[in-house]
Design a protein around this nucleic acid. Structure first.
Length: 490
DNA sequence: AACCCTAACCCT
């Protein structure tokens, strides 16, 4: 990061202020900097020290690092410090926090509370879906991190209660820890979370009972913690609620949306509610998509397909091109929810691609389904007036339940402009993630018979695509009767 | 116009 900035300015010129400048520049540009969110799980006492008298310590850290720092409410024995912003700002804040912890340990030794100084220990909270990449095949990645930094690193085997996150404990010397966290962040940035994440929220009750006990929670526990949100591409709980209150949204509305959207996909994984076989089980589905449209799904350097993979949590395989005329097989595997989301996102890509193609090449209305096989000259007045309408009609009649391309469902649901979400992050992926994840309940709720959601949506998607044949490879689940009605919102 | 790929489960 810093190296890049230094190089891109001028290799020969070395201002001493380079690193400070790069942070400010990235802040000013907004869209430019790679943003990062780091969550630290700490004991109340440690947090108190970081806040300092009248909050002066954390104030100083905020000012000097340039990072955004949020500290979870004080009524819990455990608290979470969320650091976010451009990577170098986050690291600066993190370094300062580490120094503070180190300082406190030294003080403990000085006043005789402990005889010899233990190494600094801190815990990161990381979405479980990212831990695989952190560990690496055969544990190779984490081993490498241990060896190159000299820090001790442990990835907890269990999920943190009521969440889909895991605790990563790091301890060692000052430098070791900082270097270690940097490496971890590199991995995290390279492999964004898959699907929805239920962020860990420390319980106000003393942790030992819940932590030590079984994973069984009553529904009332769940109901009292409606603050489910997404930790996805920089959108996190604190940011979401900060923005939400700023724009006057109702807490409960957002919470409900989040809850609905995430519940079925992620909650059963967290063992908070009894898992139903139907929503958990893996199904797969295959499409055939014309060669000339596959690019719109893959995107530049795979950006689109990766985003769809990430947001939906589904596994998507795009078959390789066999010959120039052949269509492409696309296989989506995952939970019904994940599959529906993936289908929806793919449909959005295709709709967009079709309307884009249309404005430039004007096929006749019928050609919509065949796509742009033979464009007629765009000059004709009659076709130029009919095509846009045809495009709209196609969108409305073919995919009525799918709604508009996926930036919109959020605003229509809340009756509020979607700007707050877009403003949350400059990353289009995360904005899409927010919108798409919240869009999930739309899919479910608008399907007339929720119990058979998987099949009708598939069928409609196929109809919408017309030239793509959809076939259900495994329909075992759709034959059963999932208890979906309870999710029918509003 | 776009040409991407998964999963990885380690270590106290």
């Amino acid at each position: 990061m810093r190296l890049l900035t230094a190089e891109s300015t001028h290799t020969s010129i070395h201002h001493t202020t380079t690193s400070a400048m790069s942070c400010e520049q990235e802040f000013g540009n907004g869209a430019m900097g790679v943003t990062l969110t780091l969550r630290l799980l700490m004991h109340g006492k440690e947090v108190g020290s970081i806040i300092g008298k009248k909050g002066e310590t954390v104030k100083r850290i905020r000012e000097e690092s340039g990072a955004r720092i949020n500290i979870s409410e004080g009524s819990c024995p455990e608290r979470i410090i969320t650091i976010s912003g451009p990577t170098d700002c986050v690291f600066r804040a993190f370094t300062m926090i580490t120094f503070k912890l180190e300082e406190d340990l030294t003080a403990l030794v000085a006043n005789g509370t402990v005889s010899n100084k233990p190494p600094v220990t801190l815990r990161l909270v990381i979405p479980a879906s990212q831990c695989g990449s952190l560990i690496g095949k055969g544990g190779s990645k984490i081993k490498e991190i241990r060896e190159t930094t000299g820090a001790q690193v442990q990835v907890a085997g269990d999920l943190l209660p009521n969440s889909t996150e895991r605790e990563v404990t790091i301890s060692g010397g000052q430098d070791a820890i900082i270097q270690c966290v940097k490496l971890i962040c590199t991995v995290i940035l390279e492999s964004p979370p898959k699907g929805a994440t239920i962020p860990y929220r420390p319980s106000p009750t003393p942790g030992s009972v819940l932590l030590g006990g079984t994973q069984v929670f009553e529904a009332s526990d769940f109901g009292s913690h409606p603050l489910f949100s997404m930790v996805q591409g920089g959108v996190d709980l604190q940011q979401t609620y900060a923005v939400q209150s700023h724009y006057g949204l109702h807490h409960s509305e957002l919470a409900k949306l989040h809850q609905l959207s995430i519940q079925q996909q992620a909650l059963s994984a967290a063992h908070v509610l009894p898992a139903s076989m139907e929503s958990n089980s893996q199904t797969s589905q295959e499409f055939i998509i014309p060669n000339d449209l596959i690019g719109s799904i893959i995107g530049r350097q795979g950006s689109k397909i990766n985003e769809i993979r990430q947001v939906s949590g589904a596994q998507i395989k795009i078959g390789s091109q066999i010959d120039s005329t052949s269509d492409r097989h696309v296989t989506i595997t995952g939970t019904p929810i994940a599959i529906n989301l993936a289908q929806y996102l793919i449909t959005s890509c295709l709709e967009t691609a079709k309307s884009t193609a249309q404005s430039s090449s004007m096929p006749s209305p019928v050609d919509l389904t065949m796509s742009f096989t033979q464009p007629s000259p765009p000059a004709s007045a009659s076709s130029s007036s009919s095509s846009p309408l045809a495009a709209m009609g196609a969108t409305l009649t073919h995919a009525p339940m799918l709604g508009a391309p996926y930036a919109l469902p959020l605003s229509s649901l809340l009756g509020v402009k979607s700007i707050p979400y877009l403003a949350l992050s400059t990353s289009s992926a995360s904005a899409a993630a927010a919108a798409a994840t919240i869009g999930a309940p739309v899919l479910q709720s608008s399907v007339p018979t929720a119990a058979t959601a998987t099949v009708p949506v598939s069928a409609h998607t196929a109809a919408a695509l017309a030239s793509y044949t959809a076939k259900i490879s495994s329909s075992a689940n759709s034959m059963k009767k999932p208890e979906r009605q309870k999710f029918a919102p509003y």
